[in-house]
Simulated assay, not measured.
Amino acid sequence: MSESRTSSVETPRVNTGVAHNARVWNYWLGGKEHDEVDEQVGGHVAGMFPVIRDVARADREFLGRAVRFLAAERGVRQFLDIGTGLPTVDNTHETAQRIAPASKVVYVDNDPIVLAHARSLLTSSPEGVTDYIDADVHDVDAIVERAAATLDFDEPVAVMMLGILNFVLDTDTACDIVRRVMNAVPSGSFLALTHPTFDADLGGEGNVAAMAFWNENATPPITARPRAEIAAFFEGLDLVEPGLVSCAQWRPDTGAPGAVPQFGAVALKP
């Protein structure tokens, strides 16, 4: 019997007067869940940094490839998706359960915009389970405790942290969050992560001005990081080939795609 549940029953109040990352990201992806202010700010950022639309698409495509790799090649049947974002197509549970219908997926976000759309995430194959937790990424203990109602932390878990640590502005704090989450999952678990960069070799210089504009005109504030700081998130883990690369170039389905200024990697907890 399939299960779909959410830890909140109250419809949140959403501020549509300020551009918000979840809606702007949806706009860049070509979705419909955004407002005029999101189009204005998102369009301005795209004018300053045209590759941002490619980044959004590449990040989403990385999610699909990573989940397929973890479910099909590594046999992972549990996913903890922290920083879910607005639901689109081929969400984590849809991709995982297409390969392994009994997969269990827990989504985590504390964004009222995402929570308002959480019911769209709460679908499942008859054999599987999906859940949604309204929690802040900083509150690792609460995330783990509540996810344990769905996931078995004695069995491997794939922790998905795509485009979430860039909203944790202090790098030491971001590293501590990753360390605590990965300490909670057993050997044989994985971390899949993406993160924007300023690094010039991936074309990230344009992020500097674009993010400054974003932080003055939208919410939440964001930061990019160099390769070395992003690599530190994987300390103690074994990177899966090809390692830490532009997310567009991580195990691409076809051809040799160009780089986008967004790192991506998957790593195993030994």
Rank of each mutant, 00 (worst) to 15 (best):
E36R: 12
L237E: 10
V37Q: 06
S7H: 06
D139S: 12
N207R: 03
P252T: 14
A71R: 07
A19E: 09
I113T: 15
F233M: 10
A259H: 05
G30E: 06
S189Y: 07
V159G: 12
T254L: 04
N183M: 14
Y132S: 01
R68Q: 07
T6I: 12
W25I: 06
R227C: 14
Y132R: 05
E155W: 01
N26T: 01
V240N: 12
P270G: 12
R60I: 01
T95N: 02
M160Y: 03
A231G: 08
L122N: 11
A265F: 05
T84M: 13
D141T: 11
V106Y: 05
A71W: 08
D152I: 02
L151K: 09
R98L: 10
V41T: 07
A212F: 00
T150L: 01
T11A: 14
A46R: 14
A200V: 10
R60M: 07
E216V: 00
E3I: 13
L239E: 01
G258K: 08
V106S: 10
A212Y: 03
R179S: 10
F49A: 13
I164L: 11
G64E: 12
A248K: 06
Q262K: 15
R60W: 03
V76H: 05
T16Y: 03
I82V: 12
D81E: 06
I230K: 11
D35S: 11
A148F: 05
V67Y: 07
G17V: 00
F233E: 12
I177W: 01
A19S: 03
V106P: 14
D199F: 00
R65M: 08
R13Q: 15
A259S: 14
T16M: 11
E205R: 12
V114C: 04
K104T: 01
L121M: 00
V24F: 00
A142H: 04
K104R: 15
V168W: 03
M1A: 15
R65Q: 03
V67E: 05
D81T: 08
L191N: 09
